[in-house]
Amino acid sequence: MKRRWQLFWIIEIALTMVLGYQIVTNPASWIGVASGLIALVIGIKGHFWRTFWLLLGGVLLAVGIFINPMIWVILFVGLVGALFGLSGKHGRRLPWQQKHYAAVHVVAPTTKGGTTTRHPWFGDETIGSSTYEWDDINITVAAGDTIIDLGNTLLPQGDATIVVRKGIGKTRILVPVGVGVMVDHSALAGTLSVDGAECGLHNQTVRQYSDDYDTAKRRVHILTNVLIGDLEVLSV
Rank of each mutant, 00 (worst) to 15 (best):
G46A: 12
H105C: 00
D230E: 13
T116E: 13
S193K: 13
A103D: 03
W96T: 12
V163A: 10
N203W: 12
Q98E: 15
I127L: 15
H119L: 08
T25G: 01
E12C: 10
W53E: 05
G167W: 00
A216T: 12
G20S: 08
R219A: 03
A142H: 00
G196H: 11
V106M: 15
V80D: 03
T215K: 09
R218V: 09
I42Y: 04
G88P: 00
Y21R: 05
T115V: 15
T153S: 14
V80Y: 13
L60E: 02
M17H: 02
A28N: 06
P156E: 01
I74L: 11
A197L: 13
L86K: 06
D212W: 03
G158I: 06
W49Y: 15
V183A: 10
F52Q: 15
L86Q: 03
V80N: 06
G81I: 00
W121P: 00
I42V: 07
R93C: 05
Y21I: 09
L56P: 09
R118G: 03
I147K: 10
I137T: 10
I173D: 01
A197Q: 15
L94Q: 15
T126A: 03
N225Q: 05
V175L: 07
I71A: 09
V77C: 09
A103N: 09
Q97G: 12
T117C: 09
G85P: 11
L154G: 15
T161A: 06
G229I: 00
F66Q: 08
H221V: 13
Q22P: 09
Q208D: 14
N203E: 08
V77R: 14
M1V: 03
R50I: 04
D135I: 11
T171F: 04
L227I: 05
K217C: 09
L55Q: 11
M70T: 15
N26G: 00
S210G: 06
Q6P: 01
E198H: 06
G36I: 01
V18R: 09
